[in-house]
Each structure stands twice: as C-alpha cells, then as structure tokens.
Nucleic acid binder design. Structure first.
Lengths: 206, 206
DNA sequence: TTAAATTAATTAAACGTTTGTTTAATTTCA
DNA sequence: TGAAATTAAACAAACGTTTAATTAATTTAA
C-alpha cells in the first residue's frame, strides 16, 4: 500500500479515537511507520492532513440516496432503503462518524466545519425531497420532514455512542446490558422501519 | 461570585466550545480573570478541573424522570413529560451536552468516560422501566424499549448539532435553512410527541 | 481593641515537556 | 546524473505545572 494511504488510514483511526488536538503528528508517524517529516512532506501540515482524511473517507460516502430519488419504488420503500443504507454505512465506520460529529460540535476550524456540513447535507436535501413528495402525493401523513430526518439519523448516531458506552460498562463487569439479544444492526433496522411506518403511514395502512 | 465558580463556568464554556485538548489552562485563566496558578491551586490539575466541571454541571441535571416513575399519570403522559423535560434541559445547555457526547466518542480518559456514562444512564434505566411497564399493562405496543429511548434522545441530540450546522450555513449566506418557521423547541416537542403516539399506541387509539 | 501570628489567596517567573514544523544531509530509484 | 523519498536533528512556540515571594484575610493573645 502507498505510504500516503497508510498515513491517511492511521490518521483517520487516531483522529477518530482521540480527536484532532488529542492526536500528535508523532503518534501518526510512528503508527504509520514513517518519519515524522513525511507528514509535512506529503500533506503540508497536520490540519491539511485532517482535511485530507475527511475528503478521503467521505469520497466513499456517496449514497444510494441520490439514485433513489427518481426510482420507481414506493415512497415507504424508499425510506426503508435509506434506513438500511445509513445503518450499513454508519456502523461500518463508526470512528469516522465520531470524528465528523465531534468536529461539528466544536467551534474552531470553521473551514473544516463547512466541509463536513456540506458532506452531511448532501443526503439530507434528497431525503427531505423524498419525504415532501410522499406527503404531497398522499402516501405519507403530514409530518415534519426535517425533524423526521433528525429522528432517522439521530437514532443511529446516538446508538453508535451508546454502544461505546455499553461496551465500557460491560468491561467494568456491571450487570446492565441494553444490547444483549440479536444483532444490533438488524434490531435498529427493524425498529426504524416500524417506527417510520407508524409515523408516516395512515393507521388504515399500518 | 466565588472565583472557584467563575473558573468552573468559564472552563465549562471553553471545554464545550473547543474541547478538552483544544482548551489551554491559560485560556481558562485569562477568561476567568485569574492567575494561571489558581487552577492548580483550586483544582489540582486541568484534568481534575474537567471532572469538576462535569460534576458541577451534572448536579443540576436531576430530572423529573425519577419522580415520574411512580406517579399516577397515564403511560403516554409520562412519555410526554419526559420529552419536554429532555428538550428543556438539552436546549438550555447545548454546550454541556456537546461536551458530554464529545467525551463519550473519545477513547482516552476512561475514568471520565465512566463518570459521564453513569450520569447519562441514570435516566435511561427509569425511562426503560416506564416503557416496559406500559408494554406489560397493554398501554403500549410491543416496541423495542432501548431503541425507542435512542430515538428520543438521539433526535434531540442530533438537532443540537444540526442547529449549529444551520447557523453556520446561514452565516455563509446560502439559501437552505431547515429550521425556518416556528420556535424550534415547540416544533421538536410536537414532533416527538406525535411520533411516540404513533409508535407506542394502537392504531385504534391514535 | 489592638498587635502579632498564622493561614489563605494571589502573583510573576521559571520549569521541563511536548507540540507542529523545518532544515539540511543522505539514501533510493529511475 | 538527477529528481524524489527519507532521515536525524534542531527549531521556536505552546503546553501543564511548580516555585518562591508577596499580599490579603483571619485567628490568636495581650
């Protein structure tokens, strides 16, 4: 593998685990097995490396959502697919999503803020449009589209953190485990799909 | 106001805005208008100051939830009150919740991790019990309790971040604003209550 | 009620580390 | 031979923390 890519993936892992300020350039260099000067050599600076990580990892985030908008499946089916698509992506790279949300909750690095915002908003616009078309066509009840999106993404996002929480607790040997049974991803998928059906469809159809 | 308290609230503000590593002891000292040595003098270290901030702010987080559990109101009414209670608290101190969730998404400072986990889990246990009783008594449908909680908290939590996002966008003068109309808090309350009614109650009752 | 004694609060300065970055020399490879 | 890749070493700046001296406040004793 290219040394540049090794640096990128090590940086992504460490930024995800310990945050931007919490990760030193020396950590990254030794983790990637390269000399510390190679980071400036390849990326210019620590901050530019961070931006490269975001760009690098988010390029793999292009979603089915865009293609979905004008496809011929039913409105509720579109929602189902969005749910599974988000679950799949967010659970497969939890560290990266930790990184994105952490950066959004911070006040400095406004440039990075904007870049991440733009990434996350891409899909939001599409999903909003799907919801609105569903409402207009009478497929969906007259719900609040933006807040419905917040519920979808927020539920998954919160679970990524909760899971971390629970793992910590289990390691400490306490006896409370909210995520015992069944595979978590399937559970979330089932929960969100049921939730959205109750939320979006008329009772008669439920 | 006590100088100790001034330091605590300045520290809470800065940790909330810039994160733990992103905030220097000198920032806090000058923000509070005290000598830099006072932080060691009062709190021992930067890390202990951080722990004090969490303890200080979370002591004000005792919820109505606990009292609610054995009260005589209906099951769905309990959920309504929990929703409003969470909205009120999380929107009134968004920085502190940013701080909590950011810390949870990080891998170091396991001790702090555990302290925050414990704070957040207090209410979760109670809400779970309310949901389970509602299910057993037939008031609620047979939903997934833990994931329902994730939806409640996750929706609000995600909105705190989304709002930040939107403010950034608006400053940049773009034309997309997902949170135009009406006061956000009321909107969220209405959305979540409707959502939970569809989710928890039988169609007949809806 | 004073004056001395004692403790607490506050300060400026310095400490040793660690930080991100750069330099200048060397190796690698085409 | 020449450009690209890699290195060890050094850089100044910022970091959290400590020191030792000074001022303020409180307690004790006459």
């Amino acid at each position: 593998m290219d040394k540049r890519e090794i640096i990128l993936s090590v940086a992504m892992k460490l930024f995800g685990q310990k945050g931007f300020e919490g990760t030193s350039v020396r950590d990254i260099a030794s983790g990637a097995g390269v000399n510390i000067a190679m980071i400036s050599y390849y990326f210019g600076s620590k901050e530019k490396l961070f931006e490269s990580v975001v760009e690098y990892k988010s390029s793999g985030m292009k979603m089915i959502v865009a293609e979905l908008e004008n496809s011929s499946v039913s409105s509720i089916e579109k929602i189902d697919r969005i749910i599974d698509s988000y679950i799949e992506r967010m659970f497969s790279t939890p560290q990266f999503h930790h990184l994105l949300h952490r950066e959004l909750s911070l006040d400095h690095r406004p440039q990075m803020h904007d870049a991440i915002t733009e990434i996350l908003l891409r899909n939001v616009v599409t999903i909003k449009s799907i919801l609105q078309k569903g409402i207009e066509s009478g497929d969906f009840k007259n719900v609040d589209p933006e807040l419905t999106i917040a519920t979808l993404i927020g539920t998954i996002s919160h679970l990524l953190i909760s899971e971390t929480m629970c793992r910590k607790i289990l390691q400490k040997g306490k006896d409370f485990n909210p995520f015992q049974s069944k595979k978590l991803k399937e559970r979330v998928s089932e929960h969100l799909k049921q939730l959205m059906r109750s939320h979006l469809l008329e009772s008669a159809k439920a």
